[in-house]
Deep mutational scan, measured.
Amino acid sequence: MATGGRRGAAAAPLLVAVAALLLGAAGHLYPGEVCPGMDIRNNLTRLHELENCSVIEGHLQILLMFKTRPEDFRDLSFPKLIMITDYLLLFRVYGLESLKDLFPNLTVIRGSRLFFNYALVIFEMVHLKELGLYNLMNITRGSVRIEKNNELCYLATIDWSRILDSVEDNYIVLNKDDNEECGDICPGTAKGKTNCPATVINGQFVERCWTHSHCQKVCPTICKSHGCTAEGLCCHSECLGNCSQPDDPTKCVACRNFYLDGRCVETCPPPYYHFQDWRCVNFSFCQDLHHKCKNSRRQGCHQYVIHNNKCIPECPSGYTMNSSNLLCTPCLGPCPKVCHLLEGEKTIDSVTSAQELRGCTVINGSLIINIRGGNNLAAELEANLGLIEEISGYLKIRRSYALVSLSFFRKLRLIRGETLEIGNYSFYALDNQNLRQLWDWSKHNLTITQGKLFFHYNPKLCLSEIHKMEEVSGTKGRQERNDIALKTNGDQASCENELLKFSYIRTSFDKI
């Protein structure tokens, strides 16, 4: 039985969820670079991206490699990797027998973001014989899940209580170790020597080791999670996991709180800001991140802002960003909400898709409305799209047979046209069989910064309504002859009103 693990408890099935942008060198404390989270699957090609990484700022997932063999891993080693800020997950990587050479110096898994409450997941690794993470000293947050690894031993010899604050939620089941077939031998045991430290858990006094050649490092209890030197002297209180010299914040392997210019500090002093819960960055760093993602459509890219001495992905609820200094300031009234469309555009074809934009005031991208039916549609669209004030790209209304009016965009005031449909149009209306009105132009103002209007096959939309939009939106004169079809717009509506004058002759039985 794995020490510190839980057996036999019912657990939810383990679901495996399925960018080499360097964020800056980590400095003297770390020998390499800070790398983003990685999802490495199918083959070993991307694994080489770990070569210079000291910190993975995010998670590391290595999974679904069915053609790899043990010899493929023999020359692979990433000794610079010290810390993973989120979680480490391995799933069905064939041929991998140990992690001792792959990650010989991995010391800390912070667990800032977890995989279903777990910071370390080893699942269905069919050839893994031992973990071998002999320098792993601290899992700051989260638990361990090690399950269905039929060859995995050296679990009962690990004292997880020396690595985690609590072992109650560890789930370590259905491994070879369960069948008591392992016969784990710690260093020196074969020669009758006791080389590794022994600890007591559940009444068992057991030597602690990761492999037959690597003991588990056990520091004096007084050192807590700070770690200790090879001689057993406690590291500085700002260290986490390990250090090369005692009581020196510049000799830590990793930091308990924050890293700044080669030393570990309790908090980031001005003019620095907390970033990702582990390091200090200056304003320029946060500003660069903001600008890199301002026009990016890459998933996970955030326009970072500053709030409460932190550089964070977005302002919290009730705050909006001051564009001059990136500071989050309290909103006066309802907060603006910028919604970034991942692929640059979004099609609204149902109430469900409209709900995804609920509360958005600025759309960074283009909207395509293609709704053919739905219950209580006008009210639903207004509830979900009615706060949109600005669209950076274009607005396209296409084959939306259920629409009679666009009044559900009740606050839309600006279409920038930074991206144009077919390279020309910022407003595009095609084949809307029941569209009769755009907006009530006596109450609604709309500016279209650039781009043209396109109207074709809107049989109940009168040309007068379209011409009014040209005047109000500032697009009059931009359109070419064929942009607004004269014969297919309003051709099934009563669009022309003329005053009919009647004269009559009164007659009676005795007068003409």
Score class of each variant (00 low, 15 high):
Asp277Ile: 04
Thr189Pro: 10
Asn257Tyr: 06
Gln303Pro: 13
Cys264Trp: 01
Thr45Ser: 06
Gly188Thr: 05
Tyr87Cys: 00
Gln216Lys: 03
Asn309Tyr: 09
His307Lys: 05
Arg74His: 15
Cys252Asn: 00
His48Asp: 04
Arg162Val: 09
Glu168Leu: 09
Leu96Pro: 01
Ile201His: 15
Cys219Ser: 03
Thr320Gln: 06
Pro334Asn: 09
Ala230Lys: 15
Thr189Glu: 10
Leu63Lys: 02
Arg263Cys: 05
Gly58Phe: 00
Pro70Glu: 03
Phe103Leu: 03
Cys234Glu: 02
Lys294Asn: 02
Cys235Asn: 01
Gln276His: 02
Tyr87Asn: 01
Val305Asn: 04
Met137Lys: 10
Asn170Tyr: 04
Ile84Arg: 00
Tyr304Val: 06
Met321Ser: 03
Glu168Phe: 07
Asn325Pro: 04
Phe115Arg: 05
Cys223Phe: 04
Phe283Asp: 08
Asp184Ala: 11
Trp210Thr: 05
Phe283Asn: 09
Asn257His: 08
Arg92Leu: 15
Gly203Asn: 13
Asn43Ala: 06
His214Val: 12
Asn295Asp: 11
Asn135Ala: 12
Asp159Asn: 13
Cys264Thr: 00
Asp177Gln: 03
His28Gly: 00
Arg92Trp: 10
Val305Tyr: 03
Leu50Glu: 00
Gly132Arg: 01
Thr229Trp: 06
Ile139His: 01
His59Pro: 10
Ile163Trp: 01
Thr229Leu: 12
Arg256Ala: 10
Lys67Asn: 06
Tyr304His: 03
Gln276Gly: 08
Lys294Ala: 13
Phe78Cys: 03
Asn149Tyr: 01
Gly241Ala: 11
His48Gln: 15
Gly203Gln: 08
Asn117Ser: 08
Phe205His: 10
Asp184Asn: 08
Thr189Asp: 06
Asp277Cys: 02
Ile158Thr: 13
Leu174Thr: 13
Gly262Thr: 11
Asn242Ala: 10
Cys235Tyr: 00
Asp75Glu: 12
Ala190Trp: 10
Ser143Met: 13
Asp39Met: 13
Ile40Asn: 02
Pro313Leu: 04
Ser98Tyr: 04
Phe123Pro: 00
Ile109Phe: 01
Asn257Ala: 08
Pro79Met: 03
Glu168Asp: 05
Met321Thr: 07
Tyr273Pro: 02
His226Asp: 10
Asp72Ser: 07
Glu33Tyr: 00
Leu128Ser: 01
Leu133Glu: 01
Cys286Asn: 01
Pro249His: 11
Trp278Pro: 01
Gly300Phe: 05
Asn322Thr: 05
Leu152Tyr: 01
Ser237Ile: 11
Pro271Arg: 15
Gln299Gly: 06
Cys153Gln: 08
Phe283Tyr: 11
Cys186Tyr: 02
Asn170His: 05
Ser323Thr: 11
Pro271Val: 05
Arg263Pro: 02
Pro270Thr: 10
Pro36Asn: 04
Lys310Asn: 10
Ile163Ser: 01
Leu136Ser: 01
Lys148Gln: 09
Met137Phe: 05
Pro269Val: 10
Gln299Thr: 07
Tyr171Leu: 08
Glu314Gln: 04
Ser296Tyr: 14
Asn150Lys: 09
Arg263Thr: 11
Gly95Ile: 03
Met65Ser: 12
Asn138Val: 08
Ile158Val: 07
Gly132Tyr: 01
Phe285Glu: 01
Val121Asp: 00
Lys310Cys: 06
His307Tyr: 09
Glu151Tyr: 14
Gly318Val: 03
His59Ile: 03
Thr189Trp: 07
Asp184Trp: 15
Gly95Arg: 04
Lys310Trp: 14
Gly37Phe: 06
Ile56Gln: 00
Thr194Ala: 07
Val173Met: 05
Val144Trp: 01
Val55Thr: 04
Asp86Cys: 01
Ile139Ala: 02
Met65Gln: 07
Lys129Pro: 01
Glu314Ser: 06
Ser323Gly: 14
Ser296Glu: 14
Leu164Ala: 10
Asn309Asp: 07
Pro269His: 14
Arg263Met: 10
His28Ala: 06
Pro187Gly: 14
His226Lys: 07
Thr329Ala: 07
Pro336Lys: 07
Gly188Trp: 13
Asp86Ile: 01
Ile172Leu: 15
His28Asn: 11
Val200Pro: 12
Lys251Ile: 03
Thr329Gln: 15
Glu51Cys: 15
Pro79Asn: 10
Glu33Ala: 15
Val206Ala: 04
Arg263Asp: 07
Asp288His: 07
Ile84Phe: 00
Asp86Gly: 04
Thr320Ile: 05
Gly32Thr: 10
Gly142Pro: 00
Asn105Thr: 03
Glu314Asn: 15
Arg74Ser: 06
Ile158Gly: 04
Cys280Gln: 01
Gly192Cys: 14
Gly142Glu: 01
Asn105Leu: 02
Cys286Arg: 02
Cys311Phe: 04
Cys315Val: 11
Leu136Arg: 01
Leu60Cys: 03
Leu164His: 09
Glu51Asp: 00
Cys264Ser: 01
Val121Gln: 01
His226Arg: 13
Cys243Leu: 00
Thr68His: 09
Thr199Tyr: 05
Lys100Thr: 07
Val173Tyr: 03
Thr189Phe: 12
His127Tyr: 03
Leu88Val: 07
Thr229Ile: 10
Thr329Leu: 09
Cys219Tyr: 04
Val218Glu: 10
His212Gly: 06
Lys191Met: 12
Cys53Pro: 00
Pro197Asn: 13
Ile306Leu: 04
Val121Trp: 04
Asp177Pro: 15
Asn242Tyr: 11
Lys176Thr: 15
Leu327Lys: 15
Cys264Ala: 00
Gln245His: 13
Asp159Cys: 05
Pro70Ala: 08
Ile306Ala: 04
Gly262Gln: 07
Thr45Lys: 11
Cys255Ile: 01
Cys223Ser: 03
Gln245Leu: 08
Ser237Leu: 07
Ser213Asn: 08
Asp165Ser: 06
His307Phe: 08
Ile185Thr: 10
Thr229Ala: 05
His214Gly: 14
Gln204Gly: 15
